[in-house]
């Protein structure tokens, strides 16, 4: 659906070369919500601009909807919707007028119908005749989301849709994106917000000039930290940890004791569903009082930070 091959974009700035994107290989599948994560200056906006045929490619190739970028740009533009970093509305014109202009430019068949549909979907219908300039940030953002969807594009690029919004406005925009899932659209979402990425995205790419890692959030976690079970014991004794270490297929056991004499065993293993019952049985057999058994879930933030520290592309520092 979206594919890039050794994609590069270099800018000349004051005589020196800035490598905004440097050898990106990417494959986004049809109908998935794809999270594109990276620090400031990683080249996310640059990548989106290339894929939306707004700026040229320095080296490499890219395809959107099986059309090659740089070859049939008008066709590609007609099939993608884009939410740019800043809303860029015509502030002196009404919300409705803003959308009508874009509906016409996108060759929408039923302009009033589509405009009404999206104004209603985003809760802006009541304010349709107000000047866009008088809108709050959140409303402006919603209006530009509507603008990106008028022509029902199969591919949608969202560049940081919720940054700069207060938590409530961010939530409404996020909820709306969630409703877009499962409508068959491919959504390419740039974000800094890791919870948002986790909630919305089927797969996540961590990126800085080039691809660092890409997978489902769950798989990324497993890849980095393996799987871990945490067993809470009412009373800690070194015997318990030793017994668990003695079991087959247990890779590692950490012990965390607390002041009241209780303790936690953090057990790294391959297959918690199959191994946990045996572990509990062993512990109980040793006389341990098991309080809770959980899976330890690392936050996406841990994953991200760990990738940024260990997997950073050599030479590609963020400004």
């Amino acid at each position: 659906m979206i594919r890039t091959e050794r994609l590069c974009k270099y800018f000349q700035s004051n005589g020196s070369e800035v490598r905004a994107v440097d050898g990106l290989d990417l494959e986004v599948r049809e109908g998935e919500v794809f999270g594109f994560l990276g620090p400031n200056g990683a080249g996310k906006t640059t990548t989106v601009r290339i894929l939306a045929c707004l700026i040229g490619i320095t080296k490499g190739r890219a395809w959107v909807n099986n059309l090659e970028v740089g070859q049939v740009d008008l066709k590609i533009r007609a099939q993608v919707g884009i939410l740019t970093e800043s809303p860029g509305l015509y502030e002196r014109l009404s919300a409705r007028r803003n959308l009508e202009i874009f509906a016409n430019l996108y060759d929408v068949g039923d302009v009033p119908g589509q405009v009404e549909k999206y104004l209603r979907l985003l809760g802006l219908w009541e304010r349709r005749d107000a000047e866009a300039g008088a809108f709050s940030k959140g409303m402006k953002q919603k209006l530009s989301v509507a603008r990106a969807l008028l022509h029902e594009p199969p591919v949608l690029f969202l560049d940081e849709p919720t940054s700069a919004l207060d938590p409530e406005a961010a939530k409404t925009v996020r909820d709306f994106i969630e409703t877009l899932r499962g409508q068959g659209r491919t959504i390419f979402l740039c974000t800094h917000n890791l919870d948002e990425a986790e909630r919305l995205c089927d797969r996540i790419a961590v990126f800085r000039q080039k691809l660092i890692a890409v997978d489902t959030p769950e798989a990324l976690r497993r890849q980095l930290f393996g799987r871990q079970t945490v067993v809470h014991l009412a009373r800690h004794d070194e015997r318990f940890a030793a017994a668990v270490r003695g079991l087959t297929d247990v890779k590692h056991v950490d012990v965390v004791t607390s002041d009241d004499g209780g303790g936690k065993l953090v057990i790294s293993l391959n297959d918690p569903a199959a191994q946990n019952p045996g572990i509990v049985q062993t512990l109980v057999g040793q006389g341990a009082q098991v309080q809770f058994v959980n899976e330890l879930r690392h936050s996406l933030e841990d994953v991200y930070l760990s990738l940024m520290q260990n997997g950073a592309a050599p030479g590609g520092g963020a400004q």
Binding site: R77, T84, G88, L89
Partner: peptide, 14 residues
């Protein structure tokens, strides 16, 4: 200035 050029140029207009 109003940054409206980017969405405009993203439409299929020559």
């Amino acid at each position: 200035i109003s940054r409206s050029l980017e969405p405009l140029l993203a439409t299929p207009i020559t």
